[in-house]
């Protein structure tokens, strides 16, 4: 008797194992597809807001007068301005077009320095080349002009100019192939624009950080309300940031349209350095 108690068939051993595995697979799939809370964000561009307004720097540096125009127009138009403030802006753009703009703006002196930058596109190396006396003179001239222009323009525009100059520098790197840099250049542009619009509330201290999600149209305008995903902890500061974003709409477009994403996460450190 005991024999058949032991020998009895075990029904559905493998079947059960397969069914159990299938059960868990189902459960896993269900979890995977139903529990993605915030997976759909394409990219987060970090933007830092700095408490000191950058207006001071604008006059000192030599960004070309036409620069403000640059921001609004496509890249080719931007090229003419860069020549005066040596190679940096030039390098930001593609090399072939360079010769054309240079003759237009500053006929004789420019051609000589320009060829040098081409072979070695990196900004660091160019600076030494640019420094020689002829450039200095040009620089001074440019500075004078700049001052006049700067006086004429509003301070916000100066900030923009500054930002675009920086963005151009970074875009330089992007031209070398890194699309990421293009994205960060765009981030800098956005940062500069918002930076110029923020009005800091009194009494804010520390180095709080805020994370704000915004949705963009392709033309750069902000759709709907920006959403505060992580507060700074100071409601007044949060409001200031949100207001600055709304006020900054439309935000600048990226130089490289492929960088554009609809949903951005902006990180603000409005009081940071």
């Amino acid at each position: 008797m005991r024999e058949h108690a032991l020998k009895r068939p075990e029904p559905g051993k493998w079947q059960s194992a397969v069914l159990a595995a299938g059960m868990h697979l189902l459960l896993g799939l269900f979890l995977f597809y139903s529990v993605r809370w915030q997976t759909s964000k394409p990219a987060a561009v970090q933007v830092e807001l700095i408490s000191s307004m950058p207006t001071v720097e604008a006059p000192v540096r030599l960004p070309p007068p036409p620069e403000p125009v640059v921001e609004k127009r496509p890249e080719p138009v931007v090229e003419p301005p860069p020549p005066p403030p040596p190679p940096k802006p030039d390098i930001a753009f593609k090399e072939p077009p360079k010769p054309k703009p240079v003759p237009k703006v500053e006929p004789k002196p420019e051609p000589k320095p320009e060829p040098k930058p081409k072979p070695e596109p990196k900004p660091v190396e160019k600076k030494p080349d640019v420094k020689p006396p002829p450039d200095m003179r040009r620089e001074i001239e440019a500075q004078d002009r700049m001052f006049k222009e700067a006086m004429a323009r509003e301070s916000a525009e100066q900030a923009k100019r500054e930002a675009s100059r920086e963005a151009d520098l970074i875009a330089q790197a992007a031209a070398e192939g890194a699309r990421r840099n293009a994205a960060s250049a765009w981030g800098d542009k956005i940062s500069a624009k918002i930076r110029s619009n923020i009005v800091l509330p009194p009494g804010a201290t520390g180095n709080p950080e805020a994370l704000v999600a915004i949705a963009l149209l392709p033309d750069g305008s902000v759709v709907g309300e920006p959403r505060m995903k992580r507060s700074t902890g100071n409601p007044a500061l949060d409001d200031a940031i949100l207001r600055a974003i709304v006020k900054s709409s439309p935000l600048p477009k990226p130089d490289d349209p492929s960088v554009f994403v609809r949903n951005l996460d902006l990180v603000f450190r409005p009081l940071g350095q």
């Binding site: 995977f32 915030q38 987060a44 960060s184």
Partner: peptide
């Protein structure tokens, strides 16, 4: 650059 948390079950 990636301060957004990905809250999918896997992560």
């Amino acid at each position: 650059m990636n301060l957004s948390e990905d809250l999918s079950i896997i992560s």
